[in-house]
Amino acid sequence: MMMSDLRRDYFVTRLVDLAEGAGANIEALFAETEAQARAQFEEEGIDPSRVSFLRFGKFRYQNQEHTTEVLLPEGEVSDAKLAEIEALFHETYEREYTYRLDAPVEMVGIHLVASAEVGKLTMAEQPLGDADASPAEKGRRVVDFALEGEHESVIFDGPSLKPGMEFAGPAIVEDPGTTIVINPRSSARVDAYGNVHIELGE
C-alpha cells in the first residue's frame, strides 16, 4: 500500500446525446474535472504536471436503464471522434450483453481516473544471522493439522523471527497481520527481506 501511486476517481453525471456539437460539451466537462483534480493534487503538494488521466464515458442506448463504461480514445473529444466512440460503445455493449441494438446512443456521465506516481521505496536486504530460531519461540501447544492429525507444535512470534533463522514443522508463526502454518515434515527459513519460505515435505 505504501508503494501504490496516488489515485482519485471522479464521477460526473451529465446526459448528452451523441449528436453534432456533443464533442465540445463532453471535452469541456472532462477539462473542468481535470482542472479540479490538478488543484486537489496541488493542495497535497503534488506538482500538477505529474498528474495523468484516463478518460471513461458511461453510455447507454436511449430509453435503456443500464449503462456501459467505455475507455475513450486518447486526445481531445471532438465531433470527429463521436463515431469512433459510438463504435467502441457498441463493441463493449455486445461483449457484455452478447447483442447490440440499432438505436441512438447517449452519454450519461464521465468517469475520470487521475493518478500521480510517488517515489517508490527500495527494499533493503538484511544480513543473514544465526539459523537458530529458538529465540523467537513463544510456547508450544497441540495443533490439529487435519490430514496429518494432532501434533504438539512450536509457536513462534512472527516479529521476532530474524533473517537466516530456520525451523521445522509442525509449527505456527503468529504475526500481527497473519498466521503461518508449517505442517509436519515441512520446514521454513527466513530470507534477507524477512519473508518466510516454506519447503513442503512429502
Rank of each mutant, 00 (worst) to 15 (best):
L147P: 03
E117W: 06
E91C: 05
E150P: 00
L147M: 12
P104S: 03
E86A: 15
K58S: 14
F156P: 07
A87F: 03
V113M: 12
M123D: 11
V142K: 07
V77K: 01
F89G: 05
G149P: 09
P135A: 05
E69Y: 01
H90P: 00
Y61V: 09
E76H: 00
H66Y: 09
D144K: 07
L147G: 08
V143I: 15
E148A: 15
E150Y: 01
L101Y: 08
A83P: 02
D157L: 02
G139K: 04
D130G: 00
V113A: 11
A80Q: 11
A136N: 13
D144P: 09
A146S: 12
M107G: 01
P73K: 00
D144H: 14
E150R: 13
L112P: 15
A116M: 13
A131W: 01
K58N: 15
V105P: 09
A80Y: 04
T68S: 07
T92P: 00
P73H: 00
L82P: 15
L128F: 13
D130R: 04
P127N: 15
E152H: 11
G57R: 02
E91P: 05
L71E: 03
Y99A: 13
G119H: 05
D79K: 10
K81Y: 04
P73L: 01
T98G: 00
K120T: 14
F145V: 01
R100L: 05
E84R: 06
T67Y: 09
I85S: 06
V154G: 00
T68W: 02
Q62F: 06
H111F: 03
L121S: 03
Y97H: 12
E91R: 14
L72Q: 05
Y97G: 00
P73A: 04
A83V: 08
V105G: 05
V143M: 09
E96A: 08
E94C: 14
L82R: 08
S78M: 05
A116T: 13
S115G: 06
P104D: 08
R100C: 05
V118Y: 06
T122E: 13
F145I: 01
N63F: 13
Q64L: 14
Y97W: 06
D79S: 09
L101H: 10
L121C: 00
Y99Q: 13
M107N: 04
H66F: 08
A131I: 02
M107I: 04
E117D: 13
E137Y: 08
T92L: 01
P127Y: 06
H111A: 08
E69S: 06
D79A: 14
T68D: 05
Y97I: 01
G109H: 03
T68P: 04
E106H: 03
I155H: 04
S153L: 12
F156C: 07
L101S: 11
V70Y: 05
V113Q: 12
E91I: 14
T98L: 13
T122K: 10
V70Q: 02
E86D: 14
E91G: 09
A116Q: 15
L88W: 04
V154Q: 01
H66L: 09
I110D: 03
T67C: 12
